[in-house]
Amino acid sequence: MATSGSLIQVKDLKKYYNGGAIKALDGVTVDINKGDVMVIIGPSGSGKSTFLRSLNLLESPTGGSIIFDGVDITKRKYKNADGKTVKVDVDDLRQKMGMVFQHFNLFPHMTILENMVLAPTKVRGVSRADAEQKALALLDRVGLKDRAGAYPIQLSGGQKQRVAIVRALAMEPQVMLFDEPTSALDPEMVGEVLDVMKELARDGMTMVCVTHEMGFAREVGNRVLFMADGQLLEQGTPEEIFTSPKNPRLKDFLGKVL
């Protein structure tokens, strides 16, 4: 996949807790390009999820910058094209980044269809009819059109996660963030979710995935990042990372998971 310019530039991103005693992120710098399928691997507690959640400001970074669409979103204000100082609109920013969580986080008091049309109608002002039509088309894509009237509790884990993915897609995001999307699933349901993600990648969606699925990282990712102790220790193509790792921590990690 040819890359066409960077979409998100992360510079020296830091997230400290307890006045710097705990460094969840300790200076991460990386460019995310359009069309990238970036897979972040690493031991638990390495800051992968914190990094991902910082991208759409679910965590507010202690330091560093995240340039998205030409705007440093970690600052509260920025100068626009006319030189005026404007507030960073976090809600607007988050619309452009879809996020999928480990525990699905579907809204249990709404049907699948309502889950999907809520944000498009309330946030983007799409008409109810258009939103429903789009939602049904998306559900059809993941084979769940016939469950549109069901409640989340009636779905299996794999089905819930597929709904969560298309719910995020309904907002037509520029980038999709996946936070361990298969970690809470029964083994036999992992495949159906990964298939949806693979299809997304083939369609050219920019994706950042924190995952423990090394097979997925190898097969679908075009860049693999290895993180430990809040730092980005090594990055490269899946080929480079999995067949000729250089960092001893990465070698150790791969020895345990492969």
């Binding site: 986080n105 809520l118 309330k122 946030v123």
Partner: peptide
């Protein structure tokens, strides 16, 4: 109400007020 609900709502672009109105309060009141 699980914090993941708010995270999901906010990540979809819902404002704090919309999150309360459509996601948190209906579940909390029930």
């Amino acid at each position: 109400i699980d914090g993941g609900q708010t995270e999901a709502a906010r990540s979809l672009g819902l404002s704090q007020v919309q999150n309360m109105r459509y996601i948190i309060l209906p579940q909390a009141l029930k």
